[in-house]
Design a protein around this nucleic acid. Structure first.
Length: 475
DNA sequence: ATGTAC
């Protein structure tokens, strides 16, 4: 990105001054290296988002951002329904409520090392992974609708996990306002056999070691100690969310024109929040959020079943579950006035600070866990929200972000070679797709450490722990 | 991300 077009606010905050149709500034967080490495298209897309009706304060961009469909991935934008604000399917993304959950095992690295190969094989055979994978669970009719209304709470009622899990999931495991009647039959049909499946691409289940603690006191509250083993799952709403995204991106284009909204880019298709299609999208998108929450709940239970075979005395406790592709109604104080806003986070994690009423009591002293997935080789990070200044409506980054296209990665690496190199470093990869592994080679990703350091310096969240992968089941 | 094109 050409930094000469930006105003540098401080070490890690850069501003695109409003010009042309922009209603608010664009704010990009990141150190100079990250900003320079970003495509100019990120700045262009940010300026486009800043021109949408009803946008409040600014169009925000996280340090791991790259250009996406309409909105940048790593973008945050909030809209006020009372000022003509819009909702945009492109502002949420195709994989609605894609997210990350981390479970504590109470095990230490040597205990897991002893069974690492067998554990990897067992996870691989119990966690459905890859394009079009199936778990054996089928849902249709009223049961599908119950899942779409109930999310992880539905999954718990059906026997996947316990009620204590729900407090540790955003929205307490169940997104209000979901309306399965707004979800097309085609979207439901695609999901019929996909509950409890990981999917493909950058989705994974990892067994990880807590390698470094940046804040041992906060880590202790989260239940993390150096040398502990945790399980992290990254996946979303599978075919259902994708179908909803596809349909509403298509249908919001004429709707925007009818509402008299000028779109600088047709990929920014959106509709007024209080319009028939805006409300239908919200009903469908919230159903997809529940689908993703239920999916991660079921996958977490599959992991519990596998671990119970190896370690019957070590139940897995849910640390937290975050979604990073959502539009949620939240109250934020803007210019001294609390306002009810529709906050779009696309490739961005909610990062509420300490004392926030939506956090479970056990976490209110430290802030919301922010779970950041890295690559297979470099590991992941756990941060907590600070709430300080309510920056970017209390949001933070979501991952490392690709540094190289899938195509370029395929030309550079062979999947088998990536698996062998990681095995030498004690990281066992299991995947149905060696092509997928090559595409996901650690070298194809940005340096996640640099991303989270930038997020911390920008005051979006603060680092608590770095996790190193031991086993990765890759979709 | 995605029954990797309807």
């Amino acid at each position: 990105m050409d930094t000469s077009r930006l105003t540098r606010i401080d070490e890690t905050s850069w501003q695109i001054e409003p010009s042309g149709a922009m209603r608010v500034p664009g704010i990009i967080y990141g150190d100079e290296t990250l900003i320079r490495a970003m495509d100019d298209k990120v700045a262009e897309q940010t300026a486009n988002v800043a021109s949408l009706p009803g946008i409040v304060k600014g169009a925000y961009v996280m340090p791991d951002a790259h250009w996406g469909y309409g909105f940048p991935i790593g973008g945050v934008a909030a809209f006020d329904p009372n000022e003509g604000g819009v909702v945009s399917a492109g502002g949420v993304g195709f994989d609605v409520s894609c997210g990350v959950r981390t479970l504590l095992t109470g095990l230490t690295v040597p205990e897991v090392r002893r069974v690492q190969e067998r554990l990897a094989d067992a996870l691989m055979s119990s966690i459905p992974a890859g394009v079009g994978s199936h778990s054996g669970i089928t849902l249709q009719g009223r049961e599908m609708d119950a899942m779409l209304r109930g999310g992880a709470a539905w999954a718990v009622e059906k026997g996947w996990g316990g009620a204590e899990d729900l407090a540790r999931i955003e929205e307490r495991g169940r997104m209000e306002g979901a309306d399965p009647d707004c979800v097309s039959e085609r979207a439901k049909k695609r999901q019929r056999r996909e509950m409890g499946t990981l999917g493909s691409g950058n989705h994974y289940l990892e067994v990880q070691a807590v390698e470094t603690l940046y804040d041992p006191d906060t880590a202790a509250v989260l239940g993390l100690a150096e040398g502990d083993v945790v399980v992290t799952i990254h996946c979303g709403s599978r075919g259902l969310g994708h179908q909803i995204g596809t349909e509403f991106l298509r249908d919001m284009l004429p709707a925007a024109a009818e509402a008299g909204i000028h779109l600088p880019d047709r990929e920014l298709a959106c509709a007024p929040i209080h319009s028939p299609i805006g409300e239908r999208y919200l009903g469908a998108m919230r159903s997809a959020i529940n689908c993703a929450l239920a999916n991660r709940q079921i996958l977490g239970e599959f992991a519990r079943e596998v671990f119970a075979r190896f370690f019957p005395d070590h139940p897995l406790d849910l640390l937290y579950d975050v979604s990073h592709n959502t539009c949620k109604v939240e109250t934020h104080t803007v210019d001294g006035r609390p306002r009810r806003l529709f906050v779009h986070r696309k490739g961005a994690t909610r990062a509420f600070g300490p004392a926030h009423a939506d956090l479970p009591e056990a976490l209110r002293g430290v802030g919301q866990p922010v779970l950041i997935g890295g690559s297979m080789g470099t590991g992941s990070h756990i941060l907590v929200g600070t709430g300080a200044g309510d920056k970017a409506f209390s949001s933070a980054c979501h991952g490392a972000g690709r540094a190289m296209s899938r195509r370029a990665a395929l030309k550079r690496w062979r999947g088998r070679q990536v698996v062998d190199e990681l095995a030498e470093r004690g990281i066992l990869i299991r995947s149905p797709s060696m092509r997928g592994v090559a595409e996901e080679a650690p070298g194809a990703y940005k340096d996640v450490d640099q991303v989270v350091i930038a997020a911390e310096r920008a005051g979006l969240a603060r680092r608590v722990a770095h996790l190193r992968p031991l086993i990765c089941v890759k979709g």
